[in-house]
């Protein structure tokens, strides 16, 4: 066997093998604390390159977000295309639309806008429902029926809401009914003040009446005794 033989190399002498092993590359010891080594990337992150395609999609995303009164963010629990179509068809009856955007696209779209509070609930498996009317009740009904999506939060009429708040919002009555209720409350306080103001006098009157009655009764008894 020859040393240059390309098929099978001549085996090394044990001393040379030892020498090769001894002189192998050794990684220098990392002197940083363990907390730092676990959290910080060892490899420097790649420089971010401007992606025109992403910018375009982000622009479209921002436009549709800004033009809608209701934006709901859902967690997508592995909906396949068929489920998504079914959901979209159900929501279309209430003039709503299902959107699935990438996380990076949405991050770029909501950067330094009023939607920036969405950043906390953003992740890769998000599904967005947008609508021009704040029909939260219908949305929640459809979402509950599909079962594969979970509400994370939303923006209803420029107000950020948690799922619980959205639930409460959906149960609140319509504007006309609410007006009527408000009018009732105002009326009730009016009537209450009226009654409160008169209550003292009425009390006095009743007390006096009772007293007078009592006196008459006692006088009658006395008369009979005498």
């Amino acid at each position: 066997m020859k040393a240059v033989n390309t098929r099978m190399k001549k085996p090394m002498h044990i001393m040379r093998a030892k020498l090769m092993k001894l002189t192998e590359y050794e990684k220098p010891k990392d002197l940083r604390p363990m907390a730092e080594t676990c959290t910080v990337f060892l490899r420097s992150l790649e420089a971010k390159i401007d992606n025109p395609t992403q910018t375009f999609y982000a622009k479209m995303c921002r436009r549709s977000l800004e033009s809608s009164k209701l934006v709901a963010v859902f967690h997508n629990e592995g909906m396949d295309a068929e489920d998504t179509i079914r959901l979209r068809r159900r929501l279309m009856k209430h003039n709503m639309d299902v959107k699935i955007w990438g996380m990076q696209v949405v991050q770029e779209a909501i950067h330094e806008t009023k939607f920036r509070h969405f950043e906390d609930i953003l992740h890769r498996f998000n599904l967005y429902v947008i609508s021009e009317e704040p029909a939260v009740l219908e949305l929640l009904k459809v979402a509950k029926r599909s079962g594969r999506i979970h509400l994370l939060g939303g923006l209803v009429e420029d107000r950020f809401m948690s799922p619980k708040q959205m639930q409460e919002y959906s149960l609140s009555p319509s504007l006309e009914v609410a007006r009527g209720q408000l009018a009732g409350i105002l009326n009730s306080s009016l009537s209450r003040t009226h009654s409160l103001l008169q209550s003292n006098q009425q009390n006095l009157a009743t007390n006096l009446e009772q007293l007078a009655k009592g006196k008459v009764n006692t006088d009658g008894k006395e008369e009979t005794e005498v």
Binding site: Y57, G102, M103, V105, R124
Partner: peptide, 10 residues
């Protein structure tokens, strides 16, 4: 499922 976009840079 990782949403990334291709870069069509010139």
């Amino acid at each position: 499922m990782c949403c990334t976009l291709l870069s069509f840079l010139y």
